[in-house]
Computed example of a mutant assay.
Amino acid sequence: MSQVRKERPVGARPESERSDWTEQDLLTIEEALPRLRDAIAEAEAELATAAGPEERDLLERRITAMRDACRRLEAR
Rank of each mutant, 00 (worst) to 15 (best):
M1V: 07
M1R: 12
S2W: 11
Q3T: 06
Q3V: 08
Q3Y: 14
V4W: 10
R5L: 08
K6Y: 11
K6T: 09
E7K: 11
R8C: 02
R8M: 08
P9R: 14
P9S: 10
V10L: 13
V10P: 05
V10C: 07
G11I: 04
G11R: 07
A12T: 06
A12R: 12
A12P: 00
R13I: 08
R13K: 15
R13L: 15
E15P: 03
E15Y: 14
S16Y: 12
E17L: 14
R18F: 07
R18Q: 13
S19T: 05
S19Y: 08
D20T: 06
W21T: 02
W21K: 10
W21I: 03
T22C: 05
E23Q: 11
E23A: 11
E23W: 14
Q24S: 04
Q24E: 03
Q24I: 04
L26V: 12
L27A: 07
T28H: 07
T28G: 01
T28E: 03
T28P: 00
E30T: 07
E30M: 08
E31L: 11
E31N: 06
A32T: 01
P34D: 01
P34L: 07
P34C: 04
R35S: 00
R35G: 04
R35Q: 08
R35C: 01
R35M: 10
L36G: 02
R37A: 08
A39R: 09
A39T: 03
I40K: 05
I40N: 02
E42C: 02
E42M: 07
E42S: 06
E42R: 13
E42K: 12
A43T: 02
A43C: 04
E44R: 05
A45W: 01
A45K: 04
L47C: 00
A48I: 00
A48F: 00
A48H: 01
T49E: 02
T49Q: 03
T49Y: 03
A51S: 09
G52Q: 08
P53H: 09
P53E: 10
E55S: 11
E55R: 15
E55I: 10
E55D: 12
D57E: 14
L58S: 10
L58G: 07
L58Y: 14
L58N: 10
L58M: 13
L59G: 00
L59I: 03
E60F: 06
E60G: 04
R61T: 02
R62Y: 14
I63R: 05
I63E: 02
T64P: 01
T64N: 14
T64H: 15
A65L: 15
A65Q: 15
A65N: 13
M66V: 04
M66I: 07
M66K: 14
M66G: 02
R67E: 11
D68S: 15
A69E: 10
A69L: 13
C70V: 08
C70P: 00
R71E: 11
R72H: 12
L73I: 11
L73S: 09
E74Y: 13
E74A: 11
A75R: 09
A75I: 03
R76A: 06
R76T: 05
R76W: 08
